[in-house]
Design a protein around this nucleic acid. Sequence first.
DNA 1: GTCTATACACAGATAGAC
DNA 2: GTCTATCTGTGTATAGAC
Lengths: 187, 187
Amino acid sequence: MTDTKTALLRSAERAARTKGFDGFSYADLAADVGIRKASIHHHFPAKADLTLAVMQRYHVAFAETCDRIDAAHTTGGARLHALIAAYRSALGNGEMVCLCVAFSISRDHITTDVRAAMGDFRQMMLEWLTATFTRGNGDGTIAQVADPAAEARAALALLEGAQLAARTQADPTAFDAALALMSSRLG
Amino acid sequence: MTDTKTALLRSAERAARTKGFDGFSYADLAADVGIRKASIHHHFPAKADLTLAVMQRYHVAFAETCDRIDAAHTTGGARLHALIAAYRSALGNGEMVCLCVAFSISRDHITTDVRAAMGDFRQMMLEWLTATFTRGNGDGTIAQVADPAAEARAALALLEGAQLAARTQADPTAFDAALALMSSRLG
DNA sequence: GTCTATACACAGATAGAC
DNA sequence: GTCTATCTGTGTATAGAC
């Protein structure tokens, strides 16, 4: 993979998370990366190819983030706290959201491949969250866990909704405000 | 307001909530309503005018929904349950989201007026939710309420995030799954 | 109030030179 | 691998007839 290809993926991810799938063009990427837009087609023949590659790269990167969290923290509470921090830092200054959130709005304009990749990503997150709530319930570091799978579904919706709130208000502290109750349950 | 204008507003709202602000065009509306796209400019000179009108109409309609809920239910728990049902039914078959959610992704492409209207809408919802959690805490119909304002912020994020989940999976029951924990707190 | 016709910008994409 | 040049479709918006 050449530097140009990586630069394109990075630029496309940022653009998608800032402006949505429909909100960025090859012209934007070309200006950002410093090549002509025709050259992008050499690396990604169609925008659908680029979009799928961005999603896959994002999935791998986030899986690594989860692995790093698991390696760095042992209790469920500490792991969940670290995940919340990861979503928080992904906000930037309140202008970005998770790739899944950005794509779900443009759902009808993206290909089946990308939709499937979005489903895979969410499934991975739900499984990680379920395991983390189960662990936090066992070690007593997450309060009031009755149903870990239900907690996981609610937590993912809360994390994504909090990102939306921060973006809508262009204020990352709106994320913190939405997560305050959840955070207060972590020991 | 003529029938055509109302039809345009209705069509535009549905399109925005289904495909996002960047995802529908005057051509789409024209085909849906049954006039030519040039005729739309007679009612809404620019797309920004149409978008603002859709947002304002939505705000008024949702405020009326909240009023109807307050008139029909006395306890905090029953009112919150009714609001959850309202968000649930707004999903359609999993293809639509709340207008705020749909617009927040396209935030950089919409005008200042519309952004301000989005902020007004969210503020109204937060105030209604805070009052409802306060009431539910007082009458004992919502369990474990420590901070009504914090509950309101978390609940709004959860509702919006649950809509995203349902849309991503094209399955309205994903909304129910994300709200299950919250619903179990209502007496 | 709606139409046809059109202007203008920009989208994604391709051909072919270098 | 990148470029210039170009194609085709579509977007918003306008002019002027009916």
